[in-house]
Design a protein around this nucleic acid. Structure first.
Length: 359
DNA sequence: AACACGGGGAA
DNA sequence: TTCCCAGTGTT
């Protein structure tokens, strides 16, 4: 595009945004801290899912100090069900850095933003453009999809290098006047019009610039290399109760999958190995027996990169083992005080619906 | 550069 | 079912 076309492109884009752009809670504020929270929540998570979490979160942690001082478990509880829990941990870690190094105010330099835990290239650019009105293109999956169609770019968007290419392209398009609106307009188009499958080109304010539309090739873009199939893992979920009927729960390790969240004890099951080894595992670890092979309840939980097949087994006999640091007895009614992954919230629901020896 | 990391919504 | 998503940190 030449300079004149770029001006017209911006005009069409921004004009549409001001009349048809979405009204969202984090667009009602100029507080960089709130915008930061919204951007982190929106990573890999859709707007409608985020809205209630965002409102609750800023109400609970209205200032960087409030978040910095909160117990991590409380932050995770507010994040419960949102997924990618390292985002919450990194956000709090980053806020603590901001409180210590920058007196609680987000810096305005790109390199300083990038040095903060949880702020990567996208979030730094989003903060610069949305909170500080700097002409910085915020390249995410949405923008890459829209721009790959408009300009027929067939580079693999799964590659890191490709993001830089879009960065450069968008840098040439973005103008000084309204950088926040530029980014948010393209995000809104990506989310509501230029969708991955069901495109709605008749509503698109930049249809006249779109080369893919000209060729009817919208669905050929963006090009993205294939993902490997998720692995299947079998687990027994152990329902172990003490004499008061409380359930044994454990806190997961501080790193890795679902870090720091609570769950019922899980025992990996090798599909081709049964019996004695498992029994001794439970005996050693929890000091009780569990019901044998017959399953009371079984279901699968799908993550993006793996699948859990979970089968509930009930503990039997006295529990002698002393609790370890990361273990607790919890009454059924108290489980809601702990952050649980959705996969184990399903277990709680099953208990409530199928067992009657509650405490 | 490749991989780990959740969950919900859409088709 | 399958695919997708306002990414970042680790290896």
């Amino acid at each position: 595009m030449n300079a004149q076309q770029i001006r017209q492109f911006n005009h069409d884009l921004l004009d549409w945004f001001h009349t048809r752009g979405r009204r969202l809670p984090w667009r009602e504020t100029t507080n960089p801290y709130y915008i930061w929270i919204s951007e982190v929540m929106l990573q890999q998570t859709q707007v409608n899912t985020v809205i209630p979490y965002y409102n609750q979160f800023i109400s609970r942690f209205p200032t960087p100090d409030a978040l910095a001082e909160a117990p991590e478990q409380e932050v995770l509880k507010c994040w419960e069900g949102l997924g990618y829990y390292s985002r919450a941990r990194n956000l709090q870690h980053g806020v603590r850095e901001v409180v210590e190094k920058y007196d609680g105010r987000l810096p305005k330099q790109k390199d300083e933003l990038l040095s903060i835990t949880g702020i990567g290239p996208y979030t730094a650019a989003a903060l610069l453009s949305i909170a500080y009105n700097e002409p910085e293109p915020a390249i995410d999956g949405n923008l890459m999809r829209v721009l790959s169609r408009v300009f027929l770019i067939d580079d693999d968007i799964a590659k890191q290098k490709t993001r830089k290419k879009f960065e450069k392209l968008a840098s040439d398009l973005i103008i000084e006047t309204e950088p926040a609106a530029f980014n948010q307009a393209l995000m809104d188009i990506g989310a509501t019009i230029c969708r991955p499958k069901n495109t709605d080109c008749s509503e698109c304010p930049i249809q006249r610039y779109c080369l893919a539309y000209d060729e009817g090739a919208q669905l050929e873009y963006p090009v993205k290399s294939g993902k490997s199939k998720p692995r299947l893992l079998h687990y027994a979920v152990l329902l172990i109760q003490d004499e008061q009927g409380r359930y044994l729960i454990e806190r997961r390790p501080d790193k890795g999958l679902l870090a720091g969240l609570w769950q019922f004890p899980m025992m990996a099951i090798d599909e081709y190995e049964t019996g004695p080894r498992q029994e001794s595992y439970v005996q050693d670890r929890y000091g009780c027996m569990v019901s044998p092979v017959e399953q009371s309840f079984s279901y699968t939980h799908r993550f993006s990169h793996l699948i859990w097949k979970l089968t509930i087994r009930e503990g039997q006999g006295p529990v002698r083992k002393k609790l370890k640091e990361r273990q607790r007895w919890s009454a059924l009614s108290e489980l809601e005080n702990y952050p649980f992954p959705v996969s184990h919230q399903k277990v709680t629901e099953w208990i409530k619906n199928n067992r009657h020896n509650h405490t």
